[in-house]
Every structure is written in structure tokens, then in C-alpha cells.
Simulated scan of single mutants.
Amino acid sequence: MTQLDAIGRRQRGAVTRPQALQHGLSPTDLHELIRAGHWQRLLPGIYATFTGRPPPATMRWAAVLYSGAGAMLCHRSAAEETGLATTVPGVIHILIPENRRVRPHPAMAVHRSRHAASRRDPRRRPPQTRVEDTVLDLASLATDAEEARRWITTACTRRLTTPDRLADALTRRPRLIRRHEIAALLAGAISRTAGLPPWPPA
């Protein structure tokens, strides 16, 4: 296996043009692979090293690669990676540092934050937000309290995180939309976990 093959495997079949050129392919080689249908373009400068319809997992990797340094999956796209949410057709959500820009693409929704680096999970690949931040993002954009509660409950039931870890993450998100409502939901979840009376009291 070549080094480029290994990179492609790690990235679920997605590679960037610079990766291809740095690991043995010439621009002519790359053009011929695409022309012959052995490779295919996924996004500008991003290719799949296989034929056929690319699976969602490959497209998520491609979106991260396209978005460049410091980019990571977030919101529902990160939830799909962790198993918190099932994969559904739609745009891929990407978080980048506040001081960066990404050329818009209809397949992607780009979010920016000065705290992007601290929200990245240190182990999961492709790069993605920590489970706790993913849950908080989804809960903050929920259509109602019941949907927000479902995100929290699902994440904890599947043992992806705990109410305490979510509450701790919330302390680092002072500007989160619907923060007080989420804090109340988490307080209730923590009380139930500890076997305490429901919070807030009736």
C-alpha cells in the first residue's frame, strides 16, 4: 500500500489535490484518473479514490478537508458521526475558527467561533466537536423544549456523555442560545440521575 492509499483509507476514500500531488501523482495523472472514472470530484480540490455514489461518511470527511485548517464537523453532522443522530440528506455542518473564511458551497453550512479549537474532540476522526458541545448546539437550535430534552436524553441514554459533563460544558458557553432553558433541563436530568426530587421544585 502506498502512502497515498493509506491517507485515503484514513479519510474514508477522500483525498485533497495537494495530498495527491505530494504523494506521487502528477497533475496529468490526476486528470487521467478522473477522466477515466477511477476517481471522482467531491468538492473543489477534493476527490474520492473510488467509483460509485460516495457515502455520507466520505462526504463529511471531504467537507472537513475542503474547509482547511482548524475545520471540524459540528451540529447534526458531528451527531451523525458519533451515532447520536441517524444520517439524513442535507448540508454538512462545519465549524471553523472565527478568523478564517471558507469559500461558500451549497453542500455545506459553515459556522465560525473564536472557541472552535477548544470545542474539538481530541480523539475522534474526522475532526469534530466534542459530544457535549454537539449536544448543546443541537439543543440550542431545537424547535421546542421537548426536542432539546430529546437530544440530551438520547446522548446520555446511549452513554455518549452524562448530564454532569453537559452541565460542565454549558458553563463554558455563556452566549449559547436558550442557555437558561437548557440549564434547567440539565439540572432536572442531574437530579433524576442522583435520585433527588425533581428540579425545579413544583
Results as ranks from 00 to 15, higher is better:
1 M>L: 13
2 T>E: 11
2 T>W: 12
5 D>M: 13
13 G>F: 10
13 G>C: 08
15 V>Q: 10
15 V>I: 15
16 T>I: 08
16 T>P: 04
21 L>Y: 02
22 Q>L: 12
26 S>M: 01
26 S>H: 09
27 P>R: 09
28 T>Q: 10
31 H>N: 02
33 L>W: 12
34 I>E: 09
34 I>F: 04
35 R>F: 02
36 A>R: 15
39 W>H: 11
40 Q>H: 12
41 R>P: 10
44 P>H: 10
45 G>T: 10
49 T>H: 04
58 T>F: 02
61 W>L: 04
65 L>Q: 03
68 G>M: 03
76 R>D: 13
80 E>W: 01
84 L>W: 05
87 T>Y: 04
90 G>L: 11
91 V>I: 05
95 L>Y: 01
96 I>A: 02
96 I>S: 00
96 I>M: 03
97 P>M: 08
98 E>V: 10
100 R>A: 05
109 A>L: 12
111 H>V: 02
112 R>A: 09
112 R>L: 01
115 H>Y: 13
116 A>W: 01
116 A>L: 01
117 A>Y: 00
117 A>F: 03
121 D>Q: 02
123 R>K: 02
128 Q>W: 00
136 L>S: 03
141 L>P: 00
145 A>E: 15
147 E>M: 14
150 R>V: 03
153 T>H: 07
153 T>Y: 05
156 C>N: 07
159 R>C: 01
163 P>V: 06
164 D>H: 11
169 A>C: 03
170 L>P: 02
173 R>C: 11
175 R>Q: 15
175 R>H: 15
177 I>A: 14
182 I>G: 03
183 A>S: 15
184 A>N: 09
189 A>C: 10
191 S>H: 15
198 P>A: 15
201 P>R: 09
201 P>N: 07
202 A>C: 04
